[in-house]
């Protein structure tokens, strides 16, 4: 029964990893940028929700519903004003810019909020769970998994069914040819960033309800997200979902035997995939 429970908890944890990772996957797939500030953005979203919640009497769900679209607008602007400039100078420049952004965000958060650990107070929602037999599924965990699957389905539908999505696929395929058919790459990149920021904001808020957070947590979140993307296969969103779930399940199953080896086991899975199946579980072309 321990194993079944661990499996279920792993899937919930993996859902949160996938939610973290899908924005990273979109930005990499469309712009070939590895956004090193991705994890820190989640922490920013958590602090934004935390401040709004403390300053107003709004319920948490409303704060979340407001934070996510605000973040997507910030994402669009960040792309147009900051990342677009660095894109023109090659892949190394984008790495340096996002790394710099990560350092600046962490230190700003530290300056504004100190290194104290916080939690988002979600009342009974944070502690109650759905009991299925002997397995207890927390509502927060379920929310993370549902948001992850929902976001990925929505992004896939956007890519395959809408004209903006077709332009995005074309630009990801070959930006020069896309320009030749009249597609404006900057707008496409802005939309991709908006999607990434929206999903990472959701991930940050869910994480902040689930566990405590502080300004230094971003890089660890980035690492899990990055591992989920690579395990699943670069450029494939379904792969990212699968990669996140695999990471969560492995961490959770190993924790049954030895809790202190749980995170290490996830990293080992990542290394094994890199060594024996570098294209990932779901190669991009097949999806």
């Amino acid at each position: 029964m321990d194993v079944v429970n661990a499996l279920a908890q792993g899937l919930l944890l993996g859902g949160l990893y996938a939610l973290f990772a899908c924005g990273l996957s979109v930005v990499f797939g469309v712009m070939r940028i590895v956004n090193l500030a991705h994890g820190d953005l989640a922490i920013v979203a958590a602090f934004c929700a935390f401040v709004t919640l403390s300053a107003t009497s709004l319920p948490l769900w409303l704060v979340a519903v407001v934070t996510v679209p605000v973040f997507s607008v910030v994402g669009y602007l960040t792309q147009r004003l900051l990342l677009q400039r660095s894109l023109q100078s090659g892949p190394l420049a984008t790495l340096l810019v996002t790394f710099g952004l990560s350092v600046v965000i962490q230190n700003l958060l530290l300056e504004l909020f100190s290194a104290d650990t916080r939690t988002l107070d979600a009342g009974s929602f944070a502690t109650s769970a759905l009991e299925v037999g002997d397995v207890s599924l927390s509502y927060v965990g379920i929310t993370g998994l549902v948001l992850a699957v929902g976001s990925i389905v929505a992004i896939q539908l956007f890519l395959s069914r809408t004209s903006s999505g077709r332009i995005m696929r074309a630009t990801s395929d070959d930006p020069q040819t896309a320009a030749l058919v009249g597609a404006d790459a900057r707008r496409v990149y802005g939309i991709a960033s908006a999607i990434a920021f929206a999903t990472v904001a959701m991930a940050g808020i869910v994480m902040a309800i689930r566990s405590s957070f502080d300004p230094s947590l971003g890089p660890a979140q980035l690492l899990f997200a990055f591992e989920a993307v690579v395990i699943g296969g670069l450029g494939s969103l379904w792969g990212t979902l699968l990669g996140g779930l695999a990471l969560g399940v492995v961490q959770s199953l190993v924790a049954v035997a030895d809790p202190s080896s749980s995170v290490l086991a996830g990293h080992l899975l990542f290394l094994l995939v890199l060594a024996f199946r570098p294209q990932g579980l779901v190669p991009a072309r097949a999806s």
Binding site: R166, D174, Q176, T177, V181, G182
Partner: peptide
């Protein structure tokens, strides 16, 4: 330089909507 992952029709449709 075709779009490897797109059909020829999707390609010309994109040119028709975006370019034209």
């Amino acid at each position: 330089r075709p779009f490897g992952g797109m059909t020829t029709f999707a390609t010309t449709l994109l040119a028709a909507t975006e370019g034209a």
